[in-house]
Nucleic acid binder design. Structure first.
Lengths: 271, 271
DNA sequence: TCAAAAAGTTAGCCGCTCCTAAATTTGGTG
DNA sequence: CACCAAATTTAGGAGCGGCTAACTTTTTGA
């Protein structure tokens, strides 16, 4: 599906804008909209009004209104009844907020001892209040982490992020082993359960068996063999591992943010 | 002037409020108003509309409007044309914000290496966003500090704070030595200068000489003898020290007898 | 003492972000 | 192909927090 190009004829245009030194201080709701739209867009290609509405827990009509304003301000393109897509400017703003969020989550977990199921809400509020200086101090204190506690990659200050598509645990064939990479930070009870069965980023997990008709999956994590529903497994992203022998190939595919390799198109896209 | 009792007949009442478990989630502007009013009230007895306006950098008419709303909600008492005073409820809310602010300042300084002239603005924004949990984690990480980096006392979770009236450095007689206690956190360039001459909380400072007609003061701090204006000295709060050597035991009633008698808490400082 | 200045309030308005209710458009499907 | 359901937008409005301009009250000082 080419949903990506659905909205703007010149979708691939690069922005040759000069270094925009002082972004115009977005309000908290605006940052939330841009972040939500970024996330929907990277999942579905375009963000639908009703999806944005439910992500932000507001009425669809409110989204339409906000979207119109953000479009006139150049943060996104809106084709009525079709959806929205961020402009480079909007994407840059979204990635700045996401960087803050993920650094905050990392700091709260690693320095202040927050459990990983409670950092989301806290970061959600702090991300709008913390200065760039504070965020960078936190990042430095952590040794500039490249992923948050849930395995989500942290965009660089320049808005570069390496959001690769990953397989889910649900797709792991029986008998194979994978490394747990990432899970959404938004579901506390899921996170608490995952911590309980030690299914956290970096963990090795083996698919022991799979009941038919989308039935429960038996895993092996360390010495335990938890049984989980396919629904849960579909939310856990994993990376194939050299399964007890062959397949040594793609070792470099970590979930860390790429170093700024490209000389030219410093596009902040997360494809 | 007995401005303290000007507004309400029971002005001096302590609040023996029962444990108010869930405060109704104040907005950011409301927290700012209550905090500003608290500070003005503890300096002048009542908070004047125009003082609140300039503290918050809004128009006086805006203050009148907000004050009316806060009065109907029970946070303060307003006597038109006379000023406002916090109710116990309003004071509790103000002290909660102040506790957050001061713990944040302490954390930023001691853990994240912020210079003391830059913590105010950062704390000003974070104090509205941080959860109680986060604040208490920071406090615990610091060993539950009782004063912030500028020497301001940190209220307890129950809203108890020890705001004693202190003498200013400007009042220190020639030849006497005092311990620097506190300075406002709101003036970055002043703070930078004080750091330069090592006049920070805990430092010992001696009044070497005093030029006539409100002229410059010569201090001794360590090995240096900085010369400062009376205006600066009036902003620095100090505590008399059992002066080593010179100045016999005249400690009690020397000059400017600041009333230390009252068992009450917050009281005014001169302007 | 009393008029002018200062301080405070009222009136009326604006922008932001949200809402509900009523159109309108889109995408199936019988 | 026409009609329905779902998605979306428009219309109209509310509350908050801010503003300016005009008016009222208090304070000041000649």
């Amino acid at each position: 599906m080419n949903a990506r190009d659905a909205l703007s004829p010149d979708a691939g245009s690069t922005d040759a804008s000069p270094p925009d030194v002082s972004p115009p201080a977005l309000t908290e709701p605006v940052e939330d909209y841009l972040k939500a739209i970024y996330e929907l867009e990277s999942r579905f290609g375009v963000a639908a009004t009703s999806d944005v509405a439910s992500a932000l827990d507001v009425a669809p009509a409110s989204v339409t209104g906000m979207v119109r304003r953000l479009a006139t301000q150049g943060y996104l393109d809106h084709v009525p009844y079709r959806g929205v897509q961020l402009t480079p400017r909007g994407r840059q703003a979204a990635l700045r907020t996401i960087r803050r969020h993920r650094i905050l989550e990392s700091y709260l977990t690693r320095v202040l001892g927050y459990p990983w199921d409670r950092v989301h809400d806290e970061a959600e509020r702090l991300e709008h209040a913390a200065s760039d200086d504070l965020i960078e101090r936190m990042a430095a204190a952590l040794g500039h982490p490249t992923a948050d506690p849930h395995g989500a990659p942290i965009p660089t200050v320049d808005g570069i992020v390496d959001e690769q598509p990953h397989r889910t645990l649900a797709e792991l064939p029986v008998g194979e082993t994978a490394r747990m990479l990432r899970v959404s930070d938004k579901n506390p009870s899921l996170l608490r359960y995952l911590a309980e069965i030690a299914l956290q980023p970096g963990a090795e997990v083996t698919m022991v068996s799979r009941a038919p008709f989308d039935g429960p999956l038996t895993l092996r994590i360390g010495k335990n063999e938890p049984v989980v529903g396919p629904n849960l497994a579909a939310q856990v992203l994993v990376e194939a591992m050299p399964s007890t022998g062959p397949r040594p190939a793609d070792a470099s595919g970590s979930h860390t943010a790429a170093a700024a390799a490209k000389p030219k198109s410093r596009k902040s896209t997360a494809r």
